[in-house]
Design a protein around this nucleic acid. Sequence first.
DNA 1: ACCTGAACACCGTTCAAGT
DNA 2: ACCTGAACACCGTTCAAGT
Lengths: 199, 199
Amino acid sequence: MMRMPQRPYHHGDLRTALLDSAERTLRERGTAALSLRELARETGVSHAAPGRHFKDKQALLDALALTGYERLAQSLEAADDPALPLEPRLTALARAYLSFAVRNAALLELMYARKHDTDLSEQLTSAVDRSVGSFERLISDAQRRGEIVEGDSERITLVAAAGIQGLAAFTANGSLDPEVALAGVDEYVHHVLHGLKPR
Amino acid sequence: MMRMPQRPYHHGDLRTALLDSAERTLRERGTAALSLRELARETGVSHAAPGRHFKDKQALLDALALTGYERLAQSLEAADDPALPLEPRLTALARAYLSFAVRNAALLELMYARKHDTDLSEQLTSAVDRSVGSFERLISDAQRRGEIVEGDSERITLVAAAGIQGLAAFTANGSLDPEVALAGVDEYVHHVLHGLKPR
DNA sequence: ACCTGAACACCGTTCAAGT
DNA sequence: ACCTGAACACCGTTCAAGT
């Protein structure tokens, strides 16, 4: 916890400090435990100070969601190797998403619960698009090579991504053991590509 | 709103009245707007009265989630026609789930956010199992007929259900238009059964 | 058995005033 | 420009006391 004993009147980077503290609380004690006043206390600042940087609690949550999407997009981009054949490529991407979901369950919940009417929604939209983009690129690439059925690539991305999102949701709320989920990704991807009907 | 002007000292069925009021609030104004004190006010009872019927707020939310699962299980069972061929049968089930998700978005969110450590968790578990059961039965039936690949039927159910859950999640949080989602169910089910790879 | 009223320890938000 | 302290209107929860 270690706080600087004599912080100067101006914090310096209160906004960042609040976001960091919020994310730690989120990870350690869940969404319900997140209070602006406690955040302020932990950061060694008056309870009214957060109001300078976030117009209200929702604004802080939105900012938190934004950093989440940015990190997710980055993880997905780092995990995507266009040189890989379709199935391992999709598997890697699915693994990256699921592993983000496992490591950031509460944050992901918050990311999906967003009420999109803030003034950072352009940034949010772009971060979301970046995340979806990795999947979309994979699908279009595969379609171009004839490795995936033709049709609206957005819809097909939805099919592929919906299942992974579902697995992530089952994992986040405890219906599915994280290790089982991660281990089962290969099987999942295989089923999605080959279908549940026998060939 | 119409309240009985001179309610007797004992409400009669306060528990049910609170749950009904809670569900209406949930539907009309979302989870964030749900407060025990307001519920008590709406029901015309003191703010401490709910404490007699629910040990705390979470207990009320759990009870609400339970009724949700019971209704969901019922919808799914009503929608499942074992006489139907595989694809239309799964489509009907998926439609029923998605339509529940659309009509009860906030409730579903709550159902998935459950912290399962209440004393009604046996009932909850059984209601959840009933819901999953409809999907599992469909999968096992189809496997028996050789219409679906062999393998652990629980895992395969997971694959089928995860995608539908994902669609529901995308719909509930506004990423996907409800009508588009419902209309796209057929396509989704088709892809899941036949796979994304060309045959 | 069921409900009330007061009390307690929390919230989020606002706003004059301080540095 | 940034932060404080007091104030306001809310919470959830508890507990003696009332019916």
